[in-house]
Design a binder for these strands. Structure first.
Length: 490
RNA sequence: CGGGAUGUAGCGUAGUCCGGUCAUCGCGCCUGGUUUGGGACCAGGAGGUCGCAAGUUCGAAUCUUGCCAUCCCGACCA
């Protein structure tokens, strides 16, 4: 058997890249830093979208759509915000091309310069809050609970498929509230939604926490996040939910009149997850044979591979396959019957392992005769022969088991790679092994910065509900009241 | 944007130092046949501006210059 992927052991980064391309999820495009998301990868993203969108709607949100372009002046209205994004913005300066007089194709028409440059949105707070000004006058207009599915552009220096691309797909929720308490509550509610989605759909255990000032979103008062641990021990920020205070309301003059007749600025939140979740999904569950998908997000959960010699057997076996497919679909299972006559079963087995299909059913003449099928699990690679009778119930049960097993495995991996450190040497040593390190920190940005320079590790978050504990900062020895999570991150 | 490297068929490659049947091999693709319970085999076939441009030369994938692109390592980041 020829090896298709680099192994995780020899080169994790290479393995990841190979896997994304070989499993047909995405590819590099002609545009630097921008990827093509291929149909199979997009189908997984659509599954994520469906589940999240439903969760947003269940928590009272509605979808809307705002422009791709943001006038430059809007972006600069909130000082911290522009500070954070200025260095990675794509700018539109002209609106027309013309033929080059030297006959070398088209050039930008210098006559067609825009009065004001437009920024391709790196995020939509500014254009949205500029719009909200017109939508909000009274407490009766609040809360405003809006989400948008969109693409954004951040001109990154170095990109990696799904994890960091110049253009990416995401959703961004932008809500407006009458009180700070309500806005904080919303921020926390959406963090819970993200954690729920990560754990119950993606089968990825996450830690909910708050970012330190250094890691906070540009323009936020508080940034909450969910942090996940990848197989190589590095941390991945899987979602963020920001309490924006009145920063954007003040920048865009968004006021409302309260019940008491007094005017006040509106309180804001924003929250988002992106196609980066695809990267998290891949790096949490997959193995050296390829992708491993949790059943809830698999475009198809079961693939049926017919095995045959003659044309006659082909007909018989495919007929059996079709009736199994029909029966499974009655139970709500997503099934693909691969009746291609152009590839051998062994080829198909490998292909679906590469693509992470949770369950494979092989059916041959022997099975048809015996009333059985061979069922193989992608997560454990175990095979067993099952009776056709009651197959659907067993398949449904197996899919649930796989979903559960993936989560349990990921959780135990995280637990095995979570350490405490009380001294600097120990801290360094634990970081080098990889994983999360709980350590004391004196609470200053300078210390955090210094630790980052020395170790490349950042404070991933201060976990919610963190127990207080007297201790000394790992670097400075100054007093500390709680441990925070340090890790190297994507 | 600094440091390093690389551009040869859809993909991966040999050849570049030392210019001259050199455009090599594997995968993939097409046709026919035999195959099909873990990536089939045999036979035949198609496919190339050797990154782009200029130069040196009788002759350039090979030498020179310029440009472009990509990858890796840093600083920046969902």
């Amino acid at each position: 058997m020829s090896k298709v992927l680099a192994s995780r052991e020899e080169n994790y980064a290479q393995w990841y890249n190979d896997l994304v391309i070989k499993a047909d999820l995405a590819d590099n495009s002609a545009v630097r830093g921008c990827m093509v998301i291929k149909p199979y990868g997009y189908a997984i993203w659509e599954k994520m979208q469906q589940a999240l969108d439903q969760m947003f709607k269940d928590t009272g949100h509605v979808n809307a759509y705002f422009p791709l372009f943001i006038p430059k002046s809007f972006l600069s209205k909130e000082a911290a915000h522009i500070e954070g994004f200025a260095k990675e913005c794509a700018v539109v300066t002209h609106y027309r091309l013309k033929n080059d007089e030297n006959g070398k194709g088209v050039i930008v028409d210098p006559e067609a310069k825009l009065e004001e440059e437009l920024i391709v949105r790196p995020t939509s707070e500014t254009i949205i809050w500029n719009t909200y000004r017109d939508w909000i006058q009274s407490y009766r207009d609040l809360p405003l609970l809006i989400n948008q599915w969109a693409n954004v552009v951040r001109w990154e220096m170095r990109t990696r498929l799904f994890l960091r691309t110049a253009e990416f797909l995401w959703q961004e929720g932008h809500t407006a509230h009458a009180t700070a308490e309500e806005a904080v509550e919303e921020t926390r509610r959406m963090l819970d939604v993200y954690a729920d989605f990560a754990e119950n759909f993606m089968a990825i255990p996450v830690i909910k926490g708050v970012k330190t000032a250094n890691e906070r979103f540009a323009g936020a008062v508080d940034t909450y996040c969910i942090e996940a641990m990848m197989q190589d021990g590095k941390a991945l920020q899987a979602g963020t939910s920001h309490f924006l205070g009145q920063n954007f309301a003040k920048a865009f003059e968004v006021k409302f009149t309260g019940k008491d007749g007094k005017q006040d600025y509106v309180w804001a939140t924003s929250w988002g997850v992106s196609t980066r979740l695809m990267g998290a999904l891949i790096m949490t569950h997959s193995d050296d044979k390829g992708l491993v998908l949790p059943p809830k997000l698999a475009p198809f959960q079961v693939v049926i591979v017919p095995i045959y010699r003659s044309d006659e057997e082909y007909q018989t076996v495919c007929d059996a396959g079709r009736s199994i497919k029909k029966e499974l679909e009655r139970f709500g299972v997503r099934v693909k019957l691969d009746d291609r006559d152009t590839h051998k079963p062994g080829f198909k087995f490998n292909e679906y392992e590469l693509r992470g299909v949770p369950l494979r059913i092989a059916i041959g003449p022997r099975d048809v005769a015996n009333g059985t099928v061979e069922v193989a699990r992608r997560d454990t690679l175990e095979k067993e022969v099952l009776q056709l009778a009651d197959l659907s119930n067993k398949v449904v049960h197996l899919l649930e088991q796989i979903q559960q097993n993936l989560y349990t495995k990921a959780l135990s991996h995280r637990e095995q790679n979570t350490h405490r450190a009380d001294h600097w040497d120990e801290f360094i040593q634990k970081l080098d092994i990889g994983g999360f390190v709980y350590a004391h920190w004196d609470g200053t940005a300078e210390t955090e910065e210094k630790i980052k320079t020395l170790t490349k590790a950042t404070i991933r978050c201060i976990p919610l509900g963190n127990p207080s504990e007297e201790g000394a900062c790992i670097l400075t020895g100054k007093p500390s009241t709680q441990r925070v999570i340090f890790a190297r991150a994507y």
